[in-house]
């Protein structure tokens, strides 16, 4: 039973309620189903809706996205157009009007495609809490979470250079469908070979993961279908796939190389 809903008007005020055990709520798409079904484990909600954390700034090739920015506002931002294909398959437009960037970091797999993108981008999370503020790589937040009482206030990422962003998601339907395999990558090439690459995977482990084995294999090699398939097979070592209603662990592992290849080669 919810005893209070707080609507703090600054990050500092959010921190006060969060330190007292309030449950941080961005758009409510994760929290409210639990409230509605009586499964909420906390009695006070702290909404970020009026905390001034929903702004998006893009300056000098760096985007700072407020944690409470709805996914729809990222989708509509002209300078974040490279993220549109990823955002358009996250739930439905109606959910994206509520669901937030910060919340997406904490949803269970096989959801959280934006978190997969942010991992590939090597984004930084700005975190506030009882001990003050700190900046943490998104990889660390995804791998080990944040401390009790802490909350993410913003995500900061460099925009990928033109031609270096790759994204592909395998799913049951074309829209509003959870991930079977999600691949996001920032990969630079020169003279036909890979000079640097970060590849993040969703749908194939309990958390979004970096495909470090595939990254290692791709360096100094061309993005040819053969090399990509080899890299996709190597990437299985970086995953821990699971069974769910969308696909079996076996299937996810089986098709991972196909979709890693498609992310880069388009087929």
């Amino acid at each position: 039973m919810i005893q209070a809903v707080h609507l703090p008007e600054s990050a500092e005020a959010v921190a006060v309620h969060s330190a007292r055990g309030g449950w941080i709520m961005g758009g409510g798409t994760v929290v409210m189903p639990l409230v509605n079904s009586g499964a909420a484990t906390r009695s006070e909600l702290v909404s970020l809706r009026r905390a001034g954390l929903a702004g998006i700034e893009v300056r000098d090739g760096v985007a700072r996205i407020g944690a409470a920015a709805p996914l729809s506002s990222v989708e509509e931002h002209p300078e974040l157009a490279f993220l549109r294909p990823a955002l358009r398959t996250i739930a439905s437009p109606t959910i994206r009007n509520l669901a937030t960037v910060g919340g997406n970091l904490f949803v269970e797999q096989p959801y959280g495609d934006l978190a997969v993108c942010l991992l590939a981008l090597d984004a930084t999370c700005e975190i506030a809490g009882p001990a003050g503020r700190r900046d943490v790589p998104v990889a660390e937040v995804l791998a080990s979470g944040i401390a009790e009482g802490e909350f993410v206030t913003a995500v900061v990422t460099a925009l990928p250079e033109p031609g270096t962003w790759y994204y592909h998601k395998a799913m049951r339907r074309k829209l509003n469908s959870a991930s079977i395999v999600t691949v996001a990558s920032v990969t630079r090439t020169a003279d036909g070979v890979v000079t640097s690459t970060r590849i993040a995977l969703g749908g194939v482990a309990p958390r979004p993961v970096r495909a470090v084995s595939a990254e290692r294999l791709l360096r100094d090699r061309p993005l040819s279908p053969e090399v990509l398939t080899e890299a996709g097979e190597a990437a299985r070592a970086d995953t821990a796939p699971f069974d769910d209603a969308y696909a079996s662990a076996w299937y996810r592992a089986r098709v991972l190389p196909v979709h890693l290849r498609r992310a880069f080669a388009g087929r």
């Binding site: 409210m32 189903p33 509605n36 079904s37 809706r49 109606t94 959910i95």
Partner: peptide, 25 residues
């Protein structure tokens, strides 16, 4: 839980499932 859409209303002109919105917010 926001999956079916039959409670959709417009909040400040944007469609959203009313079942996921704590009204104070």
């Amino acid at each position: 839980q926001g999956s079916c859409g039959t409670c959709t209303v417009l909040v400040d002109d944007r469609p959203a499932p009313a079942c996921l919105i704590a009204v104070e917010t």
